[in-house]
């Protein structure tokens, strides 16, 4: 059994388009697992519902949100337990790192106090013991002169250091599950590389499970064991990391991969954008939400609801698509030819 099992999670908010009573669906029947010692990636663009999903698991959505489904963590359904019990889980067993550390750290409380309050709340450590532990945590996440930093306020830290401090707070009680929502999006690439390395080490060394939410396929490729791709509130594809990048089957996944310029790709190739915007969707009950932007869409994609099913014999590769990208060997051949071409160029 996985550490976190999210099943059939649906989230809607009141106040859809115009009328007061309408509900707008942000997440629709999402299921995924996060295993101990593994990183599960949740990928999508704005409006895909990836962040709302993580907030629901943590019980951090506003009270107006309607949530259904289950999120079973270590045998307990986090969506069903009373708020008091959830407070004992949050911060202690499940911790979260957000995109912008400046808005998630308290600006008028020192970094040290913000770490020690977590330790004292959950472990009942003495002030002194908590202080020592906090210093060690800051050192652990690579902050130089940690003892001095404990006395400083968030604004005195750089962006990268603030994010490290956030991670230190999240790790304070050695949580079993770390949820990271775009943890490096606000950071520069060199700092991002440091933070990602740090998070990868933590998962490997401590056996922590991590749910990583991001729009960046590059970050996913380096860190995640499994990848779940969301579009407009639903899962459209899921596979293990190597499988997904080697054989993207959903047109949205392959479209994303073809539209981002790669640092290691030869120049002069034109990018293949996905037409339209993530806002051009149709409801899932009227077919595939991606159909308005999809080059392969036809009548089969509109009108009938498409299930998320295993991709042929690969039962770990799930797909919700009527016309997936052909999975053929000629793609491989192309790749090989490409490699040969590269080698020829180099030797020439």
């Amino acid at each position: 059994m996985a550490l976190l099992e999210v099943r059939d999670l649906s989230i809607s908010f009141p106040g859809g388009s115009g009328r007061g009573s309408a509900l707008s669906k942000a997440v629709d029947g999402v299921s995924f697992d996060v295993e101990a010692g593994q990183v599960a990636g949740l990928v999508g663009e704005s409006g895909s519902g990836k962040s709302v999903t993580s907030l629901a698991v943590m019980g951090l959505l506003p009270h107006t949100a309607r949530v259904s489904g289950s999120a079973s963590f270590d045998g307990r359904d986090l969506l069903a337990v009373p708020e008091r019990e959830l407070e004992g889980v949050r911060g202690r067993e499940v911790a979260m790192v957000f995109q912008d550390p400046m808005t998630s750290l308290n600006p008028v409380v020192t970094v040290g106090t913000q770490i020690t309050e977590v330790l004292r709340r959950h472990t009942g450590a003495s002030r002194r013991a908590a202080r020592d532990e906090a210093g060690e945590l800051l050192a652990r996440v690579g902050i130089p002169a940690p003892v001095r930093r404990l006395r400083e306020y968030p604004h005195q830290l750089s962006g990268g250091m603030r994010q490290r401090a956030m991670i230190a707070i999240a790790l304070a009680c050695s949580p079993k599950l770390l949820i990271a929502d775009e943890p490096t999006t606000a950071l520069d690439v060199t700092i991002q590389a440091q933070v990602l390395e740090l998070m990868g080490d933590l998962v490997r060394e401590r056996g922590t499970a991590m749910l990583l939410i991001t729009h960046d396929l590059g970050v996913v490729a380096g860190l995640c064991d499994t990848v779940t791709v969301m579009y407009s509130g639903r899962v459209v594809e899921r596979a293990d990391r190597h499988e997904l990048f080697a054989r993207p089957r959903h047109r949205y996944t392959s479209g994303l991969l073809a539209s981002v310029p790669r640092l290691d790709a030869p120049r002069g190739q034109r990018l293949q954008p996905i037409p339209g915007t993530p806002r051009d969707v149709i409801g899932w009950d009227a077919g595939c939400a991606f159909a308005p932007r999809c080059s392969a869409a036809d009548d089969a994609c509109r009108g009938t609801e498409l299930p998320l099913v295993s991709d042929g014999a690969r039962d770990r590769h799930l797909l919700r698509c009527a016309h997936p990208v052909p999975d053929q060997h000629d793609q491989h051949d192309q790749h090989d030819q490409h490699d040969q071409h590269d080698q020829q160029e180099r030797s020439a």
Binding site: S158, G160, T190, Q192, A193, Q194, L196, G218, G222, D264
Partner: peptide, 22 residues
Amino acid sequence: AVPVPDPVVEDTRERILLTGDL
């Protein structure tokens, strides 16, 4: 430091990590 959307590349490349901040 730039992540490349390709696990094969990501697993094999050598990172030169910088320390500290600007």
